[in-house]
Design a protein around this nucleic acid. Structure first.
Lengths: 169, 169
DNA sequence: ATAGATGCAAATATTTTGCCGCCAG
DNA sequence: CTGGCGGCAAAATATTTGCATCTAT
């Protein structure tokens, strides 16, 4: 399976700018009248402290390391809740590592994800040009924009030479 | 299933600016030494003439209407080939209609997809700000960008009043 | 006490693979 | 002719659901 070998190369996938504010998610859940169960506390603790983008199984494994009394389905349900409450964002990271989704706590400012197609490192980027562009869209298309997702792929400084040597099939 | 009812609301999902150049995909396949099988001709014909973004099953059904001697797996394989050859782009459209992927023939210029979260209509948008932003990223992060995907969600003129009345759960 | 949450098993949804026979070049 | 390609069945991957039970409030 091609994607398996590809996935293995992407062991790093670091998140450079984590917008961590410990306890924020838990506080939001509480103040919005959701039950603070043991499982939910575990999940939001994992997400609040994550230094990189996690998929469902990674969240599940980390939570289980803290307390094994949690089920993968509960992770799916809680992540879905947080997503619907607008507290976390869902990413695909250009399907670099497969078709699963990745999650990150909602940053104070919307940002762009930039992935190296070879080493898999994911960097975040903010730009006033991005904000301007969204305003331009709102005006020209007469819409109210509430969300956006931008994922950029390319080759980082250290991978560029290798990418030139062995271009993608 | 919540997403089922949501999906049904998105019957339109029109593509406003289709970058159609009939025969282009077939010509590219041929000139790059790929076999022009009956099935591949069907698939690229469907994609070349599509006025909206299609998922695998939609491509499959349309191709089958032209000639039923085609298998869904072949559609997966051919779409994957076209993707790897850089002839088509893959989209998620913010998972508005589920977790499948959508495809469009590679446009001459990279563009942004803007979806109405209520009616599901997808519009395309080009912006020099977008190109500038990518150049900015290349400079500041010292990368060579080879691809990007931007998907924006919000409410269009006609859906905005309704969205205010019944905000998302 | 009870509405809302979890666990478990099973179902769905989407995509990929192995293998063999077939056909485009 | 023959190596790339397609069909088929089955596997793999990713996510959701029904229902009984439990628990945070």
């Amino acid at each position: 399976m091609e994607s398996a070998s590809v996935a293995n190369r992407f062991s790093s996938g670091e998140r450079i700018n984590a917008g961590a504010r410990p306890g924020r998610l838990e506080a939001e859940l509480g103040s919005r009248g959701r039950r603070l169960t043991r499982q939910r506390r575990l999940i939001v603790r994992v997400m609040d402290t994550a230094q990189r983008h996690l998929d469902i199984d990674e969240i599940y494994e980390r939570a289980r390391k803290l307390d094994h009394r949690i089920h993968r389905v509960t992770v799916y349900r809680t992540v879905d809740l947080l997503k619907r409450m607008g507290l976390i964002d869902e990413l695909d990271l250009l399907h670099l590592r497969g078709d699963r989704h990745y999650y990150e706590t909602h940053a104070p400012r919307e940002h762009i994800h930039i992935a190296c197609l070879r080493c898999g490192k994911v960097r975040e980027f903010e730009s006033t040009l991005y904000d301007e562009m969204k305003r331009q869209i709102e005006q020209q298309l007469d819409m109210k924009i509430t969300m956006s997702r931008t994922e950029v792929g390319g080759y980082c400084r250290s991978c560029l030479p290798a990418a030139k040597r062995a271009p993608a099939s």
